[in-house]
Simulated assay, not measured.
Amino acid sequence: MPHHLMNLRHVPDDEADEIRALFEAHGVRYYETPPSRWGISMGGFWVHDEDEAERARALLDDYQDQRRTRQRQDFQDRQARGETGFWFLFRQRPVRVIVAMLAAVVILGLSLLPFLHLG
């Protein structure tokens, strides 16, 4: 019976590539199903054997702990350099931020318009 190891929906390409390399380096016999374009099927990494699933899950747990640590450190480094947050995004792409804010105000206005005309 197949064992689902990991969902591939919203997984970045670099992470999926690292997991493939990890499985191949450790000789895990896995197969992969891609996520659907419309979000109906999740896709993922699978194995057929229960023992193989346990070994692969242990490898995945270690990998994900290491990746989490790397990603947190990267975020903290970017935060220390001032490369995160609203003002950084505004300085990088002011037109996009202004358009998004205007769209939010228009949507909010259209949503509240019926309630404003009640009185």
Rank of each mutant, 00 (worst) to 15 (best):
V97R: 01
R81W: 01
R37V: 12
L5F: 11
G82N: 03
E24A: 05
R72L: 04
E54Q: 15
G27W: 09
V95Y: 06
F86L: 07
R37N: 10
L60Q: 09
G109L: 10
D17Y: 13
L118D: 06
F88V: 00
G27M: 12
I19T: 01
L89W: 02
V106D: 06
P12Q: 05
E52T: 10
D77G: 11
A25Q: 15
D13C: 04
R29W: 07
R72A: 00
D61A: 11
A103P: 05
E52I: 04
P34W: 02
Q71T: 04
Y30R: 12
H3I: 05
R9Y: 01
Q64C: 06
R81S: 07
H3R: 12
G82I: 00
R37T: 13
E18T: 06
L108S: 10
G44P: 05
Y31Q: 11
V11I: 09
H26D: 14
R20T: 14
A25C: 05
R91L: 01
W46F: 06
P35R: 04
E54V: 09
D74F: 02
F115S: 12
G82F: 02
I98G: 04
E24Q: 13
L22P: 15
R72K: 07
R20I: 15
A100K: 02
L110P: 15
E83W: 08
P12K: 11
Q73N: 08
F115C: 07
P2Q: 09
R96T: 07
Q73S: 08
T84N: 13
V95L: 12
G109Y: 07
Q66N: 00
A56H: 11
H26P: 04
I98Y: 06
H26F: 13
A56T: 00
P34L: 13
E24L: 09
G119C: 04
V95N: 07
L5G: 05
Y63M: 04
Y63F: 13
D61P: 02
H10K: 08
G43F: 03
L102V: 09
R37G: 12
P94K: 09
V47N: 09
I98C: 10
A80P: 00
D13P: 14
N7K: 09
R67K: 01
R72C: 00
Q66G: 08
R91W: 07
E50T: 02
T84A: 05
W87C: 07
Q71Y: 08
E83M: 04
N7Q: 08
E52A: 11
I40Y: 13
M101G: 13
R72N: 02
D14L: 00
L112K: 02
T69G: 05
R68Q: 04
D62V: 09
L118Q: 15
S41A: 11
G119W: 12
G119P: 14
A53F: 05
H48L: 14
R37E: 07
M1I: 03
G82E: 06
L112T: 03
V95F: 14
V106E: 06
D62M: 08
H4V: 03
P2C: 02
A104R: 01
R67L: 05
A16T: 12
A21P: 13
R55M: 13
R78T: 00
T69P: 00
E52W: 09
E83A: 09
D74E: 10
P2Y: 11
E83Q: 14
R68E: 09
A58Y: 07
